[in-house]
Amino acid sequence: MTVKPYVRAVPRYTWFLAHSRYLRYITREVTCVFIGAYAFLMLVGLKRLAEGREAWEAFVQALASPASLVFHVAVLAFALYHTTSWFNVTPKAMPIQLGDGFVPGRVIVGAHYAIWIVLSLAVLILAGVF
C-alpha cells in the first residue's frame, strides 16, 4: 500500500509573511542589503578622499542632500536591527564555558551591549560631535 506523503504547502516567494517569527528572520537577513549599501558608500568616500581635497568636499556636500538623509535613516534602522539581532544570539554562537557550567547568556549579551555603547560614545567624542 502506498501512502501519498503529506507535503505542507509553503509559498516560495511569500513564506516569510506567514508568521511573525519568519518576518523577524527575514528582516534580520535583509539587513545585509543595507550593510552592503553602506559599505559601498564608504568605498566611494575612500575613493574621493584619495582623489584629494576638492573631491572629498564634493562628497561631503552630497552627504548633505535630502536623498542622503533618507538613505542614512534607512541604513541606520537596519544597522541597529543587525546589531541587536547579532548581539542577542552571541550566547548561542559562542557559549563560554566556566568550570562545569556556562557563563549565563544575559552576561554575554549584556557585555556586548555595554562595549557597543562605550565604543559608540568614544567614536562620537573623538569625531568631534560633542
Binding site: 550593510i35 553602506y38 558608500l41 564608504m42 568616500g45 561631503v60 552627504l63 548633505a64 542632500s65 535630502p66 542622503s68 538623509l69 542614512h72 535613516v73 541604513v75 541606520l76 544597522a79 541597529l80 543587525h82 546589531t83 547579532w86 548581539f87 556586548h112 562595549i115 557597543w116 565604543l119 559608540s120 567614536v123 562620537l124 573623538l126 569625531a127 568631534g128 560631535v129
Partner: peptide, 23 residues
Amino acid sequence: TAFVTPVLVVLTLLPALGVLPDV
C-alpha cells in the same frame, strides 16, 4: 558591523542635518 556601523552611519548622516563633525 554590529559594533561600528550604527555610529559611522550617524557620523555621515549629520551633514544632512547641517552638522559637520570634525572627523
